[in-house]
């Protein structure tokens, strides 16, 4: 079975490019969204990142601003 049809293009950026995006757009306009589990977040996370575990994301989308730049990891 093939998987290609399940994916659409999305911007993949490196950690360096993410930092540049923050510099270009301003920290207030960029959100780091951590979709891992709370325990992983507690172990280590990017400074200022928002935690919404993947399993809760579809029910918590209203906590995010659709106009902001969101970097998911």
């Amino acid at each position: 079975m093939k998987w290609k049809q399940f994916f659409t293009p999305v911007s993949n950026i490196t950690g360096e490019e993410a930092k540049q995006l923050v510099a270009d757009k301003g920290a207030d306009n960029v959100v780091y969204l951590d979709v891992r589990q709370p325990k992983e977040y507690e172990n280590a996370h990017l400074p200022g990142s928002r935690l919404i575990p993947m399993g809760e994301l579809d029910r918590r989308l209203d906590e995010l601003d659709p106009d902001s730049h969101i970097i998911v990891y």
Binding site: V10, N12, T14, G15, R36, H69, I70
Partner: peptide
């Protein structure tokens, strides 16, 4: 769901 500026950070944290 209407979010336009989404980036996947390759390799994660």
């Amino acid at each position: 769901r209407g979010f336009k500026n989404i980036y996947n950070m390759s390799g994660g944290i």
